[in-house]
Design a protein around this nucleic acid. Structure first.
Length: 259
DNA sequence: ATGCCCTATGCTATAGGA
């Protein structure tokens, strides 16, 4: 089973690009972030025409997450517990029914800039809620993928110019400590498991000619429970997507698992 | 080289992204 995550930066603006990517790479499951639209205007039909089941959790203008799956999507469920006042659409999960069922969780973690600020406080509080949910999932001892745009640069080697990010919400010590907590609980960073030392990025800013200078960061991640890590076959980044016409500023990253 | 882009919005400026 091939499971991809892709921050598409607007599903309506990106539709032709996403469809071309789906047709060329044929992921079984695609976790999308920043759909930037409400559920009722999400363009379901073009995805269904490619054979995908679709479940979405959107809001007007910003944020929004979705799951596409060639296999049945069971028990879809949106939102992260722990803050009843949080109206931002950043979490959707479902169980993908297959030979071996796999739970997939699609997240769009808050950016948090500038730091310090209430936005950074929201990011850290969101990461605490994420830790609680991921701790619950760990207890189930099932193959589970928690993936998406984490807005976290884990280590210096995950940025072309780490010094530039030292005061940024994506790289501050508290952000990276919250990330490490997830790993220390027992989750596996799929990309690092397959490529322990590779210098690879998933995001290049639209500004400052970042793509042309390869000034990127690795912030889109797939975290696996032990039962899922045992099934891991491969993990790759579709870097070429960033060079296409009207690209997102992120590129897809995907795993192949024996499920 | 702090090099100014891209999406969405009752829209010709502004907010948000990272």
């Amino acid at each position: 089973m091939k499971i991809a995550t892709f921050n598409i930066n607007g599903v309506r603006a990106r539709l032709p690009r996403i469809l071309a990517w789906l047709q060329s790479r044929e992921p079984d499951v695609a976790l999308l972030q920043e759909i930037k639209c409400q559920d009722q205007i999400f363009p379901r039909t073009p995805f269904e025409d490619l054979g995908y089941n679709v479940t979405t959790h959107g809001q007007k203008s910003f944020n929004g997450v979705a799951i596409l799956s060639k296999f049945p999507l069971e028990n879809p469920h949106t939102g992260l517990k722990g803050d009843d006042d949080d109206t931002q659409a950043r979490w959707i999960e479902a169980v993908v029914g297959h030979r071996r069922a796999v739970r997939v969780c699609c997240l769009y973690l808050p950016n948090g800039n500038p730091a310090p600020s209430p936005k950074y406080d929201y990011k850290l509080a969101w990461m605490e809620r994420l830790r609680s949910r991921m701790a619950e999932l760990l207890v189930l001892e099932e193959p589970t993928v928690v993936a998406g745009d984490f807005n976290v640069i884990p280590q210096p080697e995950d940025a072309a110019n780490p010094d530039r990010w030292k005061d940024d919400a994506l790289y501050l010590p508290d952000t990276r400590a919250a990330w490490r907590w997830l790993l220390n609980m027992g989750y596996t960073d799929a990309f690092r498991a397959v490529h322990p030392t590779a210098r690879a990025f998933t995001f290049w800013d639209f500004q400052r000619r970042a793509w042309q200078r390869d000034d990127g960061i690795r912030i889109d991640h797939l975290l696996l429970t032990p039962q899922c890590a045992d099934l891991l076959q491969d993990c790759r980044i579709d870097k070429d997507e960033r060079a296409q016409l009207k690209p997102s500023d992120h590129v897809p990253i995907w795993i192949e698992i024996d499920a």
